[in-house]
Simulated scan of single mutants.
Amino acid sequence: MAEFSGRNLKRECAVPRYSSLKHFLSTGKDALAKGPIAMIFVEDDVEVGTTLRHHFDCGFKQIIVFMPDAFELPDDIVKKTHRVTYDMARDRALETAVNAIIEAAPDTWFYYCYNAEYLFYPFCETRSVGEMIAYNMEERRDTILTYVVDLYADNLRKFPNAVSLEHAHMDRSGYYALARNKPGTEWPEERQLDFFGGLRWRYEEHISEASRKIDRVGLFKSCKGLELRANHTFNLAEYNTYACEWHHNLSAAIMSFRTAKALKRNPGSSFDIETFQWHNSSAFEWHSRQLLDLGLMEPGQWF
């Protein structure tokens, strides 16, 4: 498995803690001066430290973590992270925060995910996220499409919350895409698809229809008027495309325990699931090569 070393945690002085999103936007906007910037949204206290260390190691210039006061951060992370007190249980919590940050910092590259989610991209073991974004900009692209690939522990009796970094498994097949139609029509959107698979597909009876797709525009360049919508798409059509008009572009994956956690936490599904293992389960190797080989992300023309 990957070692979350936090090797880029070099600053020793503590970063200010903000009592609210409004407080951050009024006094902490210096943190938004240079991207790429990661926004991590903490829903529970599971693997918060490893999530943040992993994304520091990816090379993000700043990390803003939105989380309730009840949760603690490890000491080494407190010294680097911009912590914003935030209630993720409120309606439209994610979109509200992301859109406020977009408005405050146009023309900046951002990434967002939840705790117990880990960004992987082609060659991430030797290249930084900034290098990937620089190449993507040469391709005249303002987004990088990410696929949310479900992770789950192999033994739910030993790991009842379905989370184990050392024993993480994933589905190696069962992923597919459908045409995304223009709202209210049967005409497909240009270069847009809805992607499905993983636990959200295998246990779709426990997942609302609106939450079943696994594509997310996880990396994007903010601009004036841009808004994130509840289904992880943006109000600008080109931002939701999987590729440009002339060739395929690179994509990335967000390896996520989030669905597995929810299925085991929810009483309506927890007792129906004794194991997430099936004949297409495979141990996750914590390496981009495995995801490239499975077709769960692609390098495009980046070599």
Rank of each mutant, 00 (worst) to 15 (best):
K221F: 00
L296D: 05
E3R: 15
S256I: 12
I214G: 02
P74E: 15
A153F: 09
L151R: 05
E138Y: 07
R7S: 14
A210N: 13
E131S: 10
M1I: 03
G268L: 12
P74H: 07
H54Y: 11
D76A: 02
I37M: 10
A168L: 07
G295N: 05
A210E: 15
G49M: 00
P299R: 05
L296Q: 10
Q62L: 02
S128K: 09
K261N: 12
E166G: 08
A38G: 09
R83L: 08
A89E: 13
C124R: 06
Q290R: 09
M1H: 05
C113A: 15
F159D: 15
Y175G: 05
N235P: 01
R200G: 02
L32I: 11
T233Y: 03
V15S: 04
L178F: 13
A177W: 01
K213Y: 11
H54T: 07
L9T: 00
F196T: 11
L219S: 05
R83I: 03
V48Q: 02
E209A: 12
K79H: 00
A210M: 14
R127I: 03
Q301E: 13
D107E: 15
P160W: 10
D57M: 10
S288Y: 08
L250Q: 12
L294F: 11
Y239G: 00
Y111P: 01
F271H: 11
D87E: 10
G218R: 06
M67N: 04
D150I: 01
T143P: 00
Y176D: 09
L263C: 05
Y176P: 04
H232A: 12
S281W: 03
L25T: 08
V129W: 01
N161E: 10
V65F: 03
Q277D: 03
V217D: 02
E274N: 14
G59F: 04
F120I: 04
M88I: 08
A33H: 14
D69E: 15
D107G: 08
E298L: 03
L73Q: 01
A253P: 04
H23C: 05
Y135H: 15
E274W: 10
K224S: 14
E138H: 11
I37F: 09
M67R: 05
S222Y: 05
A237M: 03
E3P: 06
Y147V: 10
G49S: 14
A89W: 06
F66H: 01
P183K: 15
E274D: 15
N235I: 00
G218I: 07
P122L: 04
F110L: 12
R258F: 05
P183Y: 13
G35M: 11
A2D: 11
V98S: 07
D107P: 07
R229V: 00
L292H: 06
I273Q: 09
D154G: 14
